[in-house]
């Protein structure tokens, strides 16, 4: 069952007569990592700013944990942690003092909790050093630790992997996945790194020019058995295989050195058995995954500001 942690309804932002965000509608569900994908200037940061009360909404509302951000910001944001754009912290304070500072804004300082989040992001060694001495990756991790301090139910991260090297990106991805798995927290994360989103997210919302153009399930779990998919098959003799499959009413297309078959998990074993029985040698069977990147580029073609 899906429980929505946040509901974004008709959310709009207008500055002057420019509509930065136009009537967005989507939910963020418990335990999911929802990607927010769009080209530069699409309105991702603007949307997130409104969600956390940094910007006033021009229209619509955001509901988090049942509280309206517009009407009851303090309650709504009680269980939200986040980073918007760069994780700017007080450079003249130590990482630890930064965490003390932000924790004290919500309630009394709790050293145990600070230790926990520091451990979670692996900053134990440097936590007493001044943030001035931190690398970008360490700052990002401190930013995430800060966001996690008050046991949020929703984590809002604006390009958390911005400027990180592949190893840093992989680390953050692992933290986030572990986090959702272990705590059931919902994560809303923006990026224009498409490949990164594919590896991280359960679902993505695509935004262009302030409007949502698509929502994609990346890891469909239910009714996957009967879902149509494309399979690439290398076999010998290829022509014979085409004849056999066409006879059975299977949609098949012959490429230069392989066949593309439209089928489903449920039917694939039968097809396989049939071909083998008819004396066709099968070398590889591969599921063709239309890359998110291809679809994204196809959809956002010319969508850049």
């Amino acid at each position: 069952m899906t429980v929505a942690v946040a509901k974004i309804r008709q959310l709009s932002k207008k500055i002057g007569n420019k509509e930065l965000v136009k009537s967005l509608n989507f939910d963020i569900n418990q335990g999911e990592i929802l990607g927010f994908l769009g080209p530069n200037g699409a309105g991702k940061t603007t949307t997130m700013r409104m969600m956390v009360g940094l910007m006033k909404m021009s229209g619509g509302d955001v509901e988090i944990n049942g509280f309206s951000v517009k009407k009851n910001k303090e309650q709504a944001l009680k269980h939200v942690g986040g980073i918007i754009e760069n994780p700017e912290m007080y450079k003249f304070l130590s990482g630890y003092d930064n965490l003390v500072h932000f924790q004290r804004m919500n309630g009394p300082v709790n050293g145990e909790r600070i230790k926990e989040v520091v451990k979670l992001v692996g900053l134990e060694k440097a936590i007493k050093n001044k943030v001035r001495t931190y690398s970008l990756g360490m700052k990002q991790r401190l930013g995430i630790a800060q966001a996690l301090l008050d046991h949020p139910k929703l984590l809002i991260l604006d390009e958390p992997t911005n400027g990180l090297d592949p190893e840093g990106i992989r680390e953050i991805r692992e933290y986030l996945k572990k986090l959702t798995r272990e705590t059931g927290i919902a994560v809303f994360v923006s990026s224009h790194l498409l490949s990164e989103m594919e590896l991280l997210c359960d679902r993505i919302v695509i935004i262009q020019k302030g409007q949502i153009t698509d929502t994609e399930e990346l890891h469909p779990s239910e009714d996957v058995i009967d879902k149509s998919m494309t399979v690439a098959l290398t076999c010998e003799p290829q022509n014979k295989a085409v004849d056999i499959l066409s006879e059975q009413g299977v949609i098949v297309r012959s490429e230069e050195d392989h066949l593309l078959i439209q089928t489903s998990y449920a039917k694939l074993p039968d097809i396989h058995r049939l071909l083998v029985n008819e004396g066709v040698n099968i070398y590889t069977i591969e599921k063709v995954r239309v890359s998110l990147e291809d679809r994204f580029l196809a959809k956002t073609k010319g969508g850049r500001d």
Binding site: L54, E74, I83, I84, N106
Partner: peptide, 8 residues
């Protein structure tokens, strides 16, 4: 930003 996105 970080200060004002706290529930205060």
């Amino acid at each position: 930003k970080l200060v004002l996105m706290r529930p205060v």
